[in-house]
Each structure stands twice: as structure tokens, then as C-alpha cells.
């Protein structure tokens, strides 16, 4: 299946999925739409982490800090200084990019588990600073009163409009990241994931490729942070606490870190799981932990990985064939 050949079934699927998502506010309740908005902004965050893990083999636990940073910038400049759209948003992205660049320069000297620990520690530094700085970031209270804006007569305070805007942004973001991961840059990144030394020997600037990948991922986390800040209306240190980082990591692994769409599927399932089980029991962290454990132990490739296996599974094929009348030869 070359990516240049048009696959009618696939196209039909994407069109239907798009229609389904675009028309969502018309046939589901408001809270379902709210949940989809959450899926989108956490989707950005987990896409950011998943891109680094899947394409670059780097488990970065700093991504939530970038997520929070853009929220703080919006809070400081949008609410307290009263700047109009799009300035706070652009500044947020800019700040995230600068910070990611600086931090990437420090952290990219390390690999794998050491990288994980350093990014974890850096995330905790950001959290500690946000919690303890009361002059600019307002400490534990955070910054309240962040509201979406009105441009060209479109009021983004309406949840439908906000949903559509997020959806467009998300689709665009996915598309761009998809192109990046299939570009020579993305392939070089994959090569570095497999064997950094060999890539360096061939002449690739390994260090800088990783820094740039880190920067791109950070911008995605930042975008998610902007949407989250507008959606919740408040930014507090709890936004970037360790448990959130771990939760995002869970979503990435749950969906399947090695697949491009893994983080999105993972976020989708995890957010709905959160919504459903928190209504039933207080022990949802326990449930999530067990799910996490099972996934890592029995299906390291995540949900998409399970589907991948199923596709090659005879029993499952026979179920699928049951629904389609004409028997075809397996084509791959």
C-alpha cells in the first residue's frame, strides 16, 4: 500500500469519520462534546509525547510542563495584561519553543532512561516553580478567568464553536505531524531511535535532529495547553503535576507508542474510561493502574497493536468475512 495510491475504502472511511466528528454537536449531548474537547487537548499533549517516544525513542516527561507554560502565558498576557487574540497565543507558542530549545540543548546529551529522569526532574522543577512563585504565577491559586475570544463575530465561548475550532486545529496538527514523520527528517529521527551511533557515523547531525524533534513536540504540547487553558478557564500548578504526566504517558502506551495514531486512540479510551469509571467508583486510579500494568505486560504495542494482531488472526478474519459477502484473498 503505497501512500500515493488512493485507497477508496480508506478515503470513504476518513470522509465518514470527518462527517461524524464535524456533525457531533448536533446529535450528542453537550457533555459528550465537552469530553471530545478534552480528548482533543489531551490528544495534542499525548501526540507530543507519543511523537517523541514512537519516532524518536525518547520518553520525555517534560511535555506537561510545556502544556502548562502556554496556559500560564495566556493567563499572564491574556487575562492580567489584557492583550487581544492572537498575541497571547502566539507568545505562548513562542515561549514554549524557546524553552524547549534551551532545555533540549541540555537534555539531548543523554539517552533513554537517563533522558527520562532528567526530563522528569525538569518537569518537577517547573511544577515547583509554578507552585512557589506567588508574584507572577500566583502560586497555588493560579490564574483564573481565562475565556475564549470572539473574532469575526464568531463567539468561541459557545461550546460548539470552540469544539469545531479545536477539531480543525487538531486535524491540521495531525496532518502536519504525519507529514513530518514521513519526511526525510522523520526518517532520520527513526534511524536515530534505532541506532544513534550509526546515524552519526553516516553524517547525520544526531544531536540537532533530536533537539528539533523535541521542539516540534513541545509546540504540540503548547497548542494543547492553549486549548486546555481556554476550556477550563484556569491555570494552576496542578495542571503540570507529576500524576498528569504519568497519566499522559499511560495514554500513549495504552494506544500504542509505536503507532502514529496510538496516542490519539489511547487518549480517547483513557478519557472515556475516566468519565465512565469515575461515576462508578472512587478507585479509578487503581483501575487505571491495573489497565496500565496489563497493557505493558501483555500488549506492549497497545490497543492498535492488539488490532494489528487481530488482523492477522484467523478467527477474527472469519468474523470480518462474515459481514462482507464476497470472499477476497487477503491482500497483504
Amino acid at each position: 500500500m503505497s501512500r500515493f495510491r488512493i485507497n477508496p475504502v480508506k478515503v470513504t472511511f476518513y470522509v465518514i469519520a470527518a462527517i461524524f466528528l464535524i456533525l457531533l454537536p448536533y446529535y450528542v449531548s453537550q457533555y459528550t462534546v465537552t469530553t471530545f474537547i478534552r480528548i482533543i487537548y489531551f490528544g495534542f499533549l499525548s501526540l507530543s509525547m507519543g511523537f517523541l517516544i514512537g519516532q524518536g525513542g525518547m520518553i520525555s516527561l517534560t511535555q506537561t510542563a510545556f502544556f502548562g507554560l502556554s496556559g500560564y502565558i495566556i493567563g499572564i498576557f491574556g487575562v492580567e495584561r489584557g492583550l487581544m487574540f492572537p498575541w497571547p497565543d502566539l507568545m505562548a507558542i513562542g515561549a514554549v519553543a524557546i524553552m524547549a530549545f534551551l532545555f533540549g540543548m541540555i537534555a539531548m546529551g543523554t539517552h533513554r532512561i537517563v533522558f527520562l529522569m532528567i526530563t522528569l526532574a525538569f518537569g518537577q522543577v517547573c511544577w515547583a516553580f509554578a507552585a512557589q512563585n506567588t508574584t507572577i504565577l500566583r502560586g497555588w491559586s493560579g490564574i483564573r478567568g481565562i475565556r475564549p475570544f470572539v473574532i469575526y463575530g464568531i463567539n468561541f465561548n459557545e461550546y460548539q464553536n470552540f469544539y469545531w475550532a479545536s477539531l480543525i486545529l487538531f486535524a491540521l496538527g495531525i496532518f502536519i505531524l504525519w507529514r513530518i514523520s514521513k519526511s526525510p527528517f522523520g526518517l532520520a529521527l527513526n534511524g536515530i531511535r534505532e541506532n544513534p551511533r550509526r546515524m552519526a557515523a553516516i553524517g547525520y547531525p544526531v544531536y540537532w535532529i533530536r533537539v528539533v524533534a523535541f521542539l516540534i513536540a513541545a509546540v504540540y504540547a503548547g497548542l494543547g495547553g492553549i486549548l486546555a487553558a481556554y476550556n477550563t478557564g484556569i491555570i494552576m500548578p496542578t495542571t503540570i503535576q507529576l500524576s498528569r504526566t504519568i497519566w499522559v504517558l499511560l495514554t500513549v502506551i495504552l494506544g500504542g507508542a509505536s503507532f502514529f495514531f496510538g496516542p490519539i486512540v489511547g487518549t480517547f479510551v483513557a478519557v472515556w474510561l475516566d468519565v465512565l469509571i469515575s461515576g462508578v467508583t472512587e478507585r479509578y486510579n487503581l483501575v487505571l493502574g491495573v489497565v496500565f500494568l496489563i497493557i505493558v505486560l501483555f500488549s506492549p504495542t497497545g490497543i492498535i497493536g492488539i488490532f494489528d494482531q487481530m488482523r492477522n488472526d484467523k478467527k477474527f478474519n472469519s468474523i470480518i468475512n462474515f459481514f462482507s459477502p464476497k470472499k477476497e484473498k487477503p491482500n497483504s
Partner: peptide
């Protein structure tokens, strides 16, 4: 990486 992730899951539990 899976080793580390397992410990994360255990800590949640």
C-alpha cells in the same frame, strides 16, 4: 522502557 512503565503502574496502584 517497559520496566520503568511497570513501576509507574505499580506506584499508581
Amino acid at each position: 522502557l517497559p520496566e520503568t512503565l511497570l513501576t509507574v503502574a505499580l506506584s499508581m496502584i
